[in-house]
Design a binder for these strands. Structure first.
Lengths: 205, 205, 205, 205
DNA sequence: CATGAATGAGACTTCATTCAT
DNA sequence: CATGAATGAAGTCTCATTCAT
């Protein structure tokens, strides 16, 4: 009957509320995980009623998936910024620092992602395969070329990436433990220096 | 809270069933997280009835806490095995390999722990402070001594430990992602060589 | 309740939209029943927005009642057409055929009505008493007169009407079952012949 | 792990409560339809708590399906009792009376069935095809044989069955309307006589 | 030691209706 | 005349826990 697609005009309010909800959901999901989070919490955090949340999203899972997909773009940005024309060592070390900054500035995003992968990434495997894998493959090729050209010490590109991700995100994901062990001491300054030295020593040709 | 411990005579069956339950709970909790896990799943996995589970433990949380505390002993064993009299570089590199082996052989334990810390370690902070922190402080002192003696390259001991934990546990905690990116390629062989080189370069004086 | 009728100027658009809504509601109500139908479905079916629907009707129930009342007029038309001056047998048999045709051509109306009566006709009893009953009483009197005059075989007029209604509407109301049992065979041709013979034999003096 | 099928020992209580629930559900479903019925109503009617209802059945639909399947057996019993060796006319007329009695004594079952078929029998088509159709096919063959043998007047067996079902069940399904039109007059006596005469005239050879 | 039975609290979701423009 | 936004009430279902044997 009505073939006209209901091209939802995303009005000002629409945009604002969707943002409000996603922001609230990020807070709640990253803290309690998917199952641990409740729509009630998200609604309160967003300052909206529960049914109103469901007016903007199709359900709890829809919010979660939307969040994860949005996240991936932000999350992979630094990897995309590695300049194939740049100085190899400098490029990689800059990537490490960028990742560490993200860990410091966007810890909720890091935890949201960790939560999801930790449970087998049930809602993300497709995305990982279509978006992350090609990008990683490409980066691996680049690093191999750099190694072959003698610009970097020999290293397995994928394990290198794992190490970078693991060490940088650790400060966000395992923050509770870091807090206990570091007390009041500043964390990120030391981390920055430590990681810079570690990866510099690993990769300096 | 309830200090009046019901001095249960721990019979043979008691012990067996407690073990069954904890084993089942490890499986379920590590896969779905605390909130995502249900007593039903644990009961089925353990082959016991739900009320029977609650005969052995005071509730869901009790099982979880017991599991986490038990885990910590296993988890910290390699750290305790570092020999202050041994060769510093060798000792640390051995620790890295031990941790990597644990990640491979006990991934559920790793994920259980990660899940908990990720959510702020609400049920573990006391344990972390009383058990983990002193041990880490002690190890940090040892490493500092080694560094001062010129046996290791200068390094912040705590950030070193973080890097070791992060890189080794990554293979268990982020397994879903590693699988996607590594495909059928063997993972642990490469990881072992990579981490050995990385920490050797970092620490060789 | 609210006697202050909001004397709506029934413009062209008004009329068109009311018709659109009632047509959509007929479709939806007859398929899912009163409780099973939703305003959303009706709105989509009518190509109008939900609040707009409520601009034309006071609520879900209002639409339903309006529909039922409208229906009754159509539904009872054949009964009103029975000609007291006509040939008794011919008149009744023609009525049977007219009802069967309505069952074939207006199955949604039949089901809507059936749905309502099936659930005790909560929204229709008054209408039944004030409109249907007098008409049936009148028709019963007519049939009794015809029987008394020897123009029809002795028959209880009300049970006769029940039988006519039941057998003709069955093809609309129990269509799902008829489909299963008749397969691809044509239904209404056989039904027409069968019912004609049945009521002819019953009533031929 | 546990291969032993959990052969739910249907204890005394189990049996009693399942019966209680089905009885309550029959009452509620037959009155309000599937969608119109609520677990709350069923729970109250059964005198059990809502979660307890769900301890015995997997959900609303499970109750409904169970009810419908049970019903079919009762419902088709009279059809199965038609004796191929008996006197044709007598057998069919007895069937009519048995169906009419069921309409009088089990009106809720009749309405439950009508409700379901009216909405397209979404939960019953398979059952209709595998259970009802073969039985009807068989009966149709029998009737055809009787007609061919001159024991019954020529009649389409399926339309005959439709007419029997329609006219007898009408008194249960359209009871609300029958009540309005018959007032205090006894219904089933007249119906019995009327239907007996109608089908006798139709079928007498 | 063990379990079938039961439930209160709370989770997600639907929907008729109202609000505000 | 029309609609995007919002919500209270209610519905189905889950789950940790308790009861009673």
């Amino acid at each position: 009957m009505n073939d006209a697609q209901p091209v939802k005009k995303t009005s000002r309010i629409q945009l604002r509320n969707r943002k409000l909800i996603l922001e609230a959901a990020l807070e709640v999901f990253s803290q309690h995980g998917y199952r641990g989070a409740t729509l009630d919490q998200i609604a309160v955090e967003a300052g909206l009623s529960k049914p109103n949340i469901l007016y903007y999203f199709d359900g709890k899972e829809d919010i979660h998936v939307t969040l994860l997909n949005q996240l991936m773009d932000i999350w992979l940005a630094p990897l995309r910024e590695i300049d194939p024309q740049g100085d190899p060592l400098k490029e990689v070390l800059r990537y490490v620092q960028r990742k560490l900054e993200m860990s410091r500035d966007l810890p909720r995003e890091s935890r949201l992602f960790a939560n999801e992968v930790l449970q087998g990434a049930p809602r993300m495997v497709p995305h990982l395969e279509t978006v992350l894998k090609p990008l990683v493959d490409e980066t691996a090729t680049l690093i191999k070329r750099w190694v072959a050209a003698g610009k970097l010490a020999p290293v397995d590109p994928r394990h290198l990436l794992f190490s970078i991700w693991a060490t940088t995100q650790h400060y966000a994901d395992f923050d509770a433990q870091v807090q206990v062990l570091m007390g009041d001491a500043p964390v990120y300054e030391g981390a920055s220096a430590h990681l810079d030295r570690m990866f510099r020593r690993l990769l300096a040709p």
